[in-house]
Design a protein around this nucleic acid. Structure first.
Lengths: 269, 269
DNA sequence: TTGCTCCTCACGTCACGTGAGGTGGC
DNA sequence: TTGCTCCTCACGTCACGTGAGGTGGC
């Protein structure tokens, strides 16, 4: 016969657990010393204990285990238990998969933003931009409306997106309200749907400046980029672009001081 | 301002949860009516609530969430939290994967046994058996020793096994002790190791009987098969084979009355 | 008065872990 | 006496859910 401590070492179950299993009638000692109340277990209990440990390792509840031990002899029932349990574990698996995927998305977004911030000069630069395919929604409104627009595009084209969201501004000057805005998200493919147009934005020579900070302060960066354009006698095309490299994420809002926005003015070659 | 019920509907969090979050300082009402103690929340709280719900959906603990909300502005910290959490979820994923795999193994074993039982006639039959590659351990001992032998082979060749374990008996008559036994498990491939020999068992014409029940009762089935052999004037080869189609599984012992054991006597063509 | 929303305790869940305080034999 | 193993409460964990019993305004 084994004392509780010995059984614990044999089975790998804690003494506390063994006492609990006794209380619950899962694993009952062969003998209990009447004077000391010491529990003594037999070899069969050791086997049972090992089995219980395996089942606990598979996250069966104590209640389930009791049923399984009780239904020892009826194998169809056992298989049903196992299958039901397998299904519930599979459900957890896909749940955790989904969590990992969204965590990875968020982490990748943050790391990319860090990369961009580390490599940016925050000075006006000239560069070539490629043609890009986007899903686009054009409307009259204020900057504040673009959140809803991006959400709407995201819902339709979420699985095809392949770049940062951007706004195109068609007005020559800044307008608080009733601005002519086109909100775009780059996509790999897609067809027009729900008022959203899939089209190719033409690339070309462009003047670019990455702005770091809140959107309120964008004006200063616009000043800088316009000054550059004038200084170099460049001919600016409409629309201008604002690319939201890092903004309030889908999950975390982040610190607005770290928001990154690229201003792009396409110019005549 | 929203009442707690309204906020609950907006955020999808239960009223009980919202009260708890208030107690824990996670989501504090904008105003508390002094006379009625009613909680009133503002629009910002609604945003917070939605965020908390997302984070809870990702199985962050309330404590984690408090830290995350507190570290809102320090993005490196946030990313660290997310990555740590991702790692812990990935650990769970692989744990659950392992559980599903072992459940599937057990379920498949039970279902196969059911299939065999359903298709078996439990009468003596003649058939051809193929050559099979096995990992084999030969020893002098009693039937009771074969459990250890199979365990030892399983440890070495577990990943290559592709069939039911079997014993070969080299003695002409039954011996309780000091029997000459070879315990084998079919394998896809493998090389000799640890005293275990990988070799090909020759096939051929054989007389077979599937025995249902405990091992104690095997004698009766042996009687039956020997009677058949004699009746048909067949020449039996040594060793005889016992194939354990269904026995005490690795997890569940099952009902010994449902154990299935195939007796095979190879005979001269 | 009835129905609705809100309130505050207090207790339950699940499988133990963590003491506290005590016993019994070497 | 000290150290070890065992015992029995009682309480904590985590994020709520489930009442019970009561309030306040329509």
């Amino acid at each position: 016969l084994f004392s509780i401590g010995e059984l614990s070492r044999i089975t790998g179950l804690s003494v506390k657990a063994l006492r609990l299993y006794h209380d619950k009638g899962l694993l009952v000692p062969a003998r209990i010393d009447p004077s000391s109340s010491y529990r003594y277990y037999d070899a069969e209990a050791a086997e049972e204990g090992r089995l219980i440990r395996k089942l606990r390792g598979m996250e069966f509840s104590l209640e389930d285990i009791k049923e399984i031990l009780g239904a020892r002899d009826h194998e169809d029932e056992l298989v049903d238990y196992l299958e039901a349990h397998k299904d519930s574990i599979c459900a957890k698996l896909s749940h955790y998969h989904a969590i990992v995927r969204s965590l990875e998305t968020v982490i990748a977004y943050e790391k990319e933003a860090r990369m961009i911030a580390d490599n940016a000069t925050f000075e006006v630069e000239e560069k070539q931009v490629e043609n890009i395919l986007v899903a686009a929604l054009r409307y009259q409104g204020s900057y504040a409306d673009c959140g809803k627009a991006f959400a709407r595009i995201g819902r339709r084209f979420g699985r095809y997106t392949c770049g940062k969201p951007m706004n195109l501004y068609y007005d020559a000057e800044y307008k608080e309200n009733d601005a002519d805005i086109e909100s775009c998200i780059p996509v790999r493919k897609g067809t027009d749907a729900d008022g959203i147009v899939v089209r190719e934005l033409p690339g070309g020579r462009c003047v670019s400046l990455i702005h770091k900070g809140t959107y309120d302060e964008l004006g200063r960066s616009y000043e800088k980029i316009v000054a550059y354009v004038n200084e170099h006698g460049l001919q600016v095309q409409t629309p201008s672009r604002e690319i939201y490299l890092k903004g309030p994420g889908m999950l975390l809002r982040g610190n607005p001081k770290n928001y990154l926005t690229e201003l792009q003015l396409l110019v005549e070659e």
